[in-house]
């Protein structure tokens, strides 16, 4: 009975708020905003010719810097949970799967490289490339290829931090009198390419490690240890 009442009240609350939002959206003007024109005007200086990439890695590069921070942070957080190895072999990987993965992974790496290159003039870029790399990593984990993380934890940590580190170093190296990320034209194009390559590699490594979820140094599960504290 109490549950029914709570359910009804919550549903009414959601319906009311949804109605309010609908009114709000219908009241929005039909005319577009004028930021698109400003992006076009700045495109020549941005070092790339695709407007979305220009926004992501030049006009609003600071967002992207923090966002790569979010990725590395989440990997740190996930590893801090000290999860146990999940994908214990439940049986041998079938020959078809093994063969498929062997052929697919190199192809995916190529596709990632292509997407990365494409990013400066067409839809694509570091995130798309990183996602494909991450997908390749997930395939490897699923077919019981250990990620390099568990054989070379330090190297894997370095790979995962590469994107943020290169981005930070690039921002500080080009920092003059506290002016952050002020790069234009050709210099900007090269810098963006460098950042994108590093970011794509790190994003791939982080996504694959997030899928596996256990920290490289976690030999035994924390759950078996005694938890002190209240």
């Amino acid at each position: 009975m109490r549950q029914m009442l709570a359910f009804t009240l919550l549903t009414l609350l959601v319906l009311a708020s949804g109605l309010g939002l609908a009114v709000a959206v219908l009241s929005l003007p039909d005319a577009p905003t004028d930021l698109a024109a400003r992006v076009d005007a700045g495109l020549d200086d941005s070092g790339v010719s695709h407007p979305v990439t220009a926004v992501l890695l030049n006009f609003r590069a600071y967002d992207t810097l923090l966002e790569i921070g979010v990725l590395l942070l989440v990997l740190t957080g996930t590893w801090s949970f000290g999860l146990e190895r999940r994908l214990d072999p439940e049986g041998p990987v079938g020959p078809i799967q093994a063969e498929l993965v062997r052929n697919l992974v190199p192809l995916m790496v190529l596709v990632a490289g292509h997407l990365l290159w494409l990013g400066s003039k067409a839809p694509g870029g570091a995130f798309q490339a990183g996602a494909v790399l991450g997908g390749a990593g997930v395939l490897l984990v699923l077919s019981q290829h250990p990620l390099p993380a568990w054989r070379h934890p330090a190297g894997y940590r370095a790979t995962a931090s590469l994107g943020l580190l290169v981005f930070l170093i690039a921002s500080v190296a080009t920092m003059r009198d506290g002016r952050l990320l002020e790069v234009r034209g050709r210099e900007a194009g090269l810098l963006i390419l460098l950042i994108e390559v590093a970011a794509a590699i790190s994003i791939g490594a982080i996504l694959a490690a997030l899928f596996a979820a256990e920290a490289p140094e976690t030999a035994t599960s924390l759950d078996e240890r005694k938890e002190p504290q209240p």
């Binding site: 590395l72 942070l73 940590r157 931090s161 500080v172």
Partner: peptide
């Protein structure tokens, strides 16, 4: 600018 960039640098270094 430094008060944002420095802790980020520190976070990466401490992660490594």
């Amino acid at each position: 600018v430094l008060s944002v960039v420095l802790p980020l640098f520190g976070a990466v270094a401490a992660f490594l």
